[in-house]
């Protein structure tokens, strides 16, 4: 399609331009994220020494991973239920419920969830990071669900039916036929869920307990006192590590295919 490739490249360049700026400023010698004065590695040293920031980054990744796994599994199952079984009464309602976390501004959900969790804590006496993880998993579901469902809707049933006609048990049909076909949808959904969880501020701020500060919360608190390139350094490290991991994965995958 003419123009499509150009548009795609434009998007990719536009997406990376701010990231480039962000990385450049992580090497700023000055304590500003908007005024460049000179090169230094100080902020990397500071970030690595800063317990608070390291802990926050680790909590963020931990919660995002948990939320991604849970929400992607739940969303895949729900997407199968809403597209792979016959139409049923209440399908619209189910669809509405799954998308509900999108519909209310976060602060409202956050305040209401806070009241609810306080009640649960009082009754059960349980505390800990589990609350935060579950809350993240819940609001990640619609983001994981939508791409998976879109994928399922465009997949024809022929292959699955053919397999079923050959008396393959449903589970086998699922793992050997449906799941591989569904793969791209699941990957897309999981990636969105991960990003959404990693960047959440408001719900996390309200629900997090002692020692559960995530990176966005850490940064939010820093606004009034000035954000320093330390945050850029941490972001750069996070990006670099993930690029390395994915490259590694890619290489391994290629090896295995050969």
């Amino acid at each position: 399609m003419p123009g499509f490739t150009a548009t795609a490249w434009l998007c990719i360049v536009a997406l990376y331009l701010p990231i480039l700026v962000l990385i450049v400023f992580s090497f700023n010698e000055n304590r500003s994220v908007v005024l460049w004065t000179g090169f230094s590695l100080d902020w990397y040293a500071k970030a690595l020494e800063n317990d608070g920031i390291r802990h926050a980054a680790w909590v963020s990744v931990k919660i995002a991973l948990f939320a991604t796994v849970i929400s992607t599994i739940a969303a895949t199952m729900a997407a199968l239920a809403t597209t792979r079984t016959k139409k049923f009464a209440g399908q619209g309602l189910v669809y509405g419920i799954i998308n509900q976390p999108l519909m209310i501004p976060e602060i409202v959900t956050a305040i209401a969830t806070l009241s609810l969790f306080a009640l649960v804590k009082k009754i059960t006496g349980l505390t800990g990071i589990g609350y935060l993880m579950l809350a993240h998993a819940a609001f990640c579901i619609p983001f994981a669900y939508m791409p998976i469902r879109a994928r399922l809707e465009t997949m024809t049933l022929t292959l699955e039916q053919a397999a079923a006609d050959l008396y393959a048990p449903p589970l086998k049909v699922f793992t050997l036929v449906t799941l591989p076909l569904l793969g791209p949808g699941i990957v897309a959904g999981a990636m969105l869920a991960f990003v959404v969880s990693l960047d959440d501020v408001i719900i996390t701020l309200m629900i997090a307990g002692p020692g559960e500060t995530t990176l966005p919360i850490y940064i939010l608190g820093a606004i009034r006192r000035g954000v320093t390139p330390e945050i850029n350094a941490v972001s750069t490290i996070l990006v670099a590590v993930s690029v390395l991991l994915v490259m590694l994965l890619f290489v391994v995958q290629r090896r295995m295919q050969r």
């Binding site: 990719i12 997406l15 990376y16 962000l22 400023f25 908007v34 990693l198 960047d199 939010l220 990006v239």
Partner: peptide
């Protein structure tokens, strides 16, 4: 992955950039 990677950085810092 390339499309989502920029969003692994923080919203605020990204916006400053």
């Amino acid at each position: 992955f390339l499309i989502t990677l920029p969003f692994w950085t923080n919203l605020l810092i990204r916006t400053y950039a």
